[in-house]
Nucleic acid binder design. Structure first.
Length: 269
DNA sequence: AAATTCTCCTGAAGGC
DNA sequence: TGCCTTCAGGAGAATT
């Protein structure tokens, strides 16, 4: 599912192929995503040039001349760039048709979003309370330690709290805790500064590596809903009951707020 | 304020 | 073979 690395890879992909392109037409085949897609979008976007593409957390920001298109991929969303006149399939809900290709938004489970805003996007209700970017310098051991002090939830859930640090979902939270050798169920306020530093460092390493893997995949236009960009590199996610790659102890798992949490009972403390 | 639960949706997987 | 039921998950909204 798309987390920060997949969204970042998508952003780079779009920047490479559709930046400065002009929209010819917008087709909405299904408008009911997480929220309804604004009805006026085809009319508003027609003939507008895509000026800039950005990312905040898991949100893609497409800057046009009169406003910004906010896109979120939810948990099953993906974007494909296709030749003009490519027939659509099931779940391919929206086409932004440029003069040289189609930007096609697909999302089987429809937890994604496509919204339009004319205000500063960082003042938008969905973005204004987001925490720091995990790859920025602001995200470090001190910051995480500070944020942990008042929280009793498991540290893994804190890593997934987008008001603290944005863009980390279930898969990468598991991977990060594993890499840092921190037990994901540890109450946040029990973590020492050095442990928070390990988590911050591990976060950057895991996410950067995943972005590279995603970028490689996307370059070949292989992007689709079944291919995991980072799947080959996952150490714990989806591997419950299998041996820990570090010490061969069988990986344990627990449900945490509805999310599967996998860890090595031996080498994560 | 912080934590928990509910909600949207579909496809895959498992049980009988 | 086929029809259930369960689950997975992002994250805002509603509750506790």
């Amino acid at each position: 599912m798309p987390e920060l690395p997949e969204v970042e890879a998508t952003k780079l992909h779009l920047a490479q192929h559709v930046k400065t392109a002009v929209i010819q037409q917008v087709i909405i085949r299904c408008k009911q995503l997480r929220w309804p897609i604004p009805k006026h979008l085809p009319q508003t976007l027609k003939n507008q040039r895509l000026q800039h593409i950005d990312r905040r957390g898991k949100y893609l920001l497409l800057y046009f001349e009169t406003g910004i298109l906010l896109m979120h991929l939810g948990m099953s969303g993906y974007i494909r760039l296709l030749p003009l006149n490519t027939p659509f399939k099931k779940h391919e809900h929206v086409d932004l048709i440029f003069n040289h290709l189609i930007l096609r938004f697909c999302d089987p489970r429809r937890f994604g979003a496509i919204l339009w805003t004319i205000q500063s996007p960082y003042d938008h209700a969905l973005l204004k309370d987001l925490g720091v970017e995990p790859l920025s310098q602001s995200f470090n051991g001190h910051y995480l330690h500070q944020a942990s002090q008042t929280r009793g939830i498991p540290i893994k859930q804190l890593l997934m709290d987008h008001k603290v640090v944005t863009g980390i979902g279930n898969i990468y939270a598991n991977e990060i805790a594993y890499k840092a050798r921190i037990h994901p169920l540890r109450p946040a306020h029990t973590l020492h500064l050095t442990e928070c530093q390990s988590l911050a460092t591990a976060s950057k390493q895991v996410l950067k590596k995943a972005i590279q893997a995603g970028g490689t995949t996307i370059k070949d236009f292989q992007i689709n809903d079944t291919m995991g960009y980072f799947q080959q590199q996952l150490q714990v996610y989806g591997r419950q009951g299998l041996p820990c790659p570090r010490c061969a102890t069988l990986l344990d798992h627990k449900r945490l707020g509805g999310r599967i949490t996998i860890f090595c009972p031996q080498c994560q403390h």
